[in-house]
Design a protein around this nucleic acid. Structure first.
Lengths: 135, 135
DNA sequence: CTGCATCCCAAAGGATACTG
DNA sequence: CAGTATCCTTTGGGATGCAG
């Protein structure tokens, strides 16, 4: 699982530095909204701001703006402004974003396959906490 | 990518309900600390509270407690209390947690392979924002 | 009318002190 | 050692304003 073992860059003593960088990137990318936006764009190609928000569901305009800006900065999506009236802005996934989406695919599959198991675990946990002592 | 297409449960009109459930689960699981904790436990087997915090790195006790509780509730880890003095609590990944870790493996690989590309994209974005106009 | 910035408040998160 | 409780700071969400 770890990144330590397969260092692909030029050799040196920067193993821990690379590890740190990758961890930061994971922290950035392993974000609820980022993943949901990425998935929406991967499914529907290009979307306008409002429509994208609808597809994601339950996200505020503020967070959508922030998330999408971050993703644009990271090179995961492109933002195209059409200077027309009424204004039109389209967000589109990039090849890099597509590769991340593909990498994250396994997690989607995991969620669809194990969500019942998770819910059972929760029920059990809540039940045990309610009455019994645990330890 | 989507879950819509391969519904594995009994047929019915509950596609959107399942979709919602899976999305909620993704929102829960696609969390920075959850993934980092999961990875630490996957690499090192069983860890005590403090040691786990050290392995994760940069996490506060409060968030570690919260994250680990959540994960225990979701059935991703087990929490074993040894009634000794000083107290000893060990956290261990479950088979379910292991499966999630494996599913998330692709994202780790993506991060290690593309972090340079992301950084280049950021530099370019910041550079463009500094001086030029974008649209 | 669309897209975003701003304001304000609620909630999440970090640091510290304290208990079993 | 492993938390819980208590601050206080930061972040996120809803509503509103405003430019194109």
């Amino acid at each position: 699982m770890s990144v330590k073992m397969r260092d692909q860059g030029p050799p040196g003593g920067n193993d821990s530095r690379l590890e740190t960088l990758v961890r930061e990137l994971i922290g950035r990318v392993a974000d609820k909204w980022t993943m949901l936006v990425l998935d929406s764009l991967e499914e529907h190609g290009a979307l306008r701001f409002t429509r994208l928000g609808e597809m994601v569901g339950g996200i505020s305009q503020k967070m959508l703006t922030k998330t999408v800006r971050q993703m644009e900065r990271d090179g995961l999506v492109t933002r195209t402004v059409y200077p027309v009236i009424p204004p039109k802005v389209e967000y589109k996934i990039t090849p890099l974003g597509l590769s991340l989406s593909a990498a994250f695919c396994g997690v989607w599959e995991w969620a669809s396959q194990h969500h019942e198991e998770v819910e059972r675990a929760r029920k059990k946990f809540d039940h045990a906490s309610t009455k019994g002592r645990r330890s």
